[in-house]
Nucleic acid binder design. Structure first.
Lengths: 240, 240
DNA sequence: CGGATTGTTGATAAAGTTCAAACACGGTGG
DNA sequence: CCACCGTGTTTGAACTTTATCAACAATCCG
């Protein structure tokens, strides 16, 4: 089994755990863009660590409307919650081409049984995910269109920084405007207008799947961005 | 130590685990209404199981605006995520008078070390919490004022049913309109209007902390309510 | 080429916010 | 006892934000 890179969220796992975890990787899958990895309700016996590419999770309402509930960057376990839950309440799909490392639940359970500390470290990953969920609720409920979109872009840029996918200015975020509308709970047309406002205010541009941040301080201010909820364990400046 | 009742969410824990858990309860605290149990950022070495009363969790934005991210009913572990995380990203406070059972993290860690299955069952509780977070994101982003409020009321009524706090028609939900506004991400004025609309449509009334459901089917339809995300393990009709 | 998806703009409608005022209620201090 | 204050509820009116409808250009893909 080839060596995986310990970047992004999994960088928070203790190194010994990471070494043990790597040995449990059953295989690495490659998925095309806009592919469904998991359907809501499916029973899972593996969990996936995202290695390359971006993924999203979304729930579908009765009226067929789609709401993104999460965006995943490399280093995220995208469906680790299926280990305690068994099945998922949402879909998981790729945005661009992705590579995922698959871990059998049986092996992960054995790992948890061996070390309570490791079990807790895995648990913690899913709890940071939950903290991000809470923040999304905050963003939807308390921020207006421009602030909400700015906030989402700040979060995503920071998370891309943490997994080495950004250079401080340009970030690959392959979301179309319709998809961005599903992230922010806004209409497509309004997403377009707010993006124009952000562009004309000199804060950032989002074109062809690339976010270019022109004035990060202004963007973070417009988005009321405070990354406390990410439970950052290391200084972002120091790299990860 | 007095015996605790296994109701609501903790009813999902296997009985042997529940017995072991009870023995770990260090003490039971009583909290007055509108009391802060935990401040965001505080380091915790205990987690609390809500026995009686209702609690909410909320985050506070830079502008001082408050967003509720969760409502807790009896049987919920309100801050179990502090066990893997150590500190919380939000406040926890009571709505009415509450009783909480406190469990030292050290004891819970020992319990997890003894049984991987039990560890996973505790983890699962926090993952259902996360699923509810996702649903709140959906509610905020994809439902309009009336649908969103109806949806929240359906969820809360169902969860109160599951912990034996509702009779199918009347439910204690001691939220004021300003608080409900923080739950739904709406202005107080608009909450008042939507409540009037729900009342005049004959669906439900909310007065003096009591929700009275007059037409459940209509309310669930108006709120697009589908409880799949609650991962209900037992038939609600069969009690719990 | 033709069709589908995406991005953009304008006009109009709807939803929700803000401001303001009135009323009820419980507590508090004179 | 009453006056007063803060909080919660309700309503009206003006205003802002966002959605919806419609049209069109650009791009990608078969």
């Amino acid at each position: 089994m080839q060596k995986l890179t310990r970047t992004g969220m999994v960088h928070r796992l203790p190194e010994p755990l990471w070494d043990r975890l790597q040995a449990l990787c059953e295989r690495i899958d490659t998925l095309p863009p806009r592919a469904v990895m998991t359907h809501a309700g499916a029973l899972l016996d593996h969990s996936a660590l995202l290695i390359d590419g971006l993924m999203v999770r979304h729930v579908t309402g009765g009226g067929g409307n789609r709401q993104m509930v999460s965006l995943q960057v490399p280093g995220d376990f995208v469906d680790l919650h299926a280990l305690p839950l068994g099945r998922l309440d949402h879909d998981v799909l790729t945005l661009d081409a992705c590579r995922v490392a698959l871990f059998p639940h049986a092996a992960l359970r054995r790992l948890m049984a061996e070390s309570e500390e490791d079990a807790r470290a895995m648990w913690a990953l899913t709890m940071i995910d939950a903290s991000i969920h809470r923040h999304w609720t905050f963003r939807m409920g308390s921020l207006r269109a421009m602030a909400g979109l700015a906030n989402f872009l700040c979060e995503t840029a920071l998370r891309l920084d943490l997994c080495g996918r950004g250079d401080g200015e340009r970030y690959p975020i392959p979301l179309t405007q319709p998809e961005l509308a599903d992230v922010c709970g806004m209409s497509v047309v309004h997403i377009g207008r707010v993006l124009r406002d952000l562009r004309e205010a000199g804060m950032c541009t989002l074109r062809e799947g690339v976010l270019t941040i022109r004035d990060r301080a202004a963007l973070e201010k417009a988005g009321n961005f405070d990354p406390g909820y990410l439970y950052l364990p290391w200084d972002p400046e120091a790299g990860g």
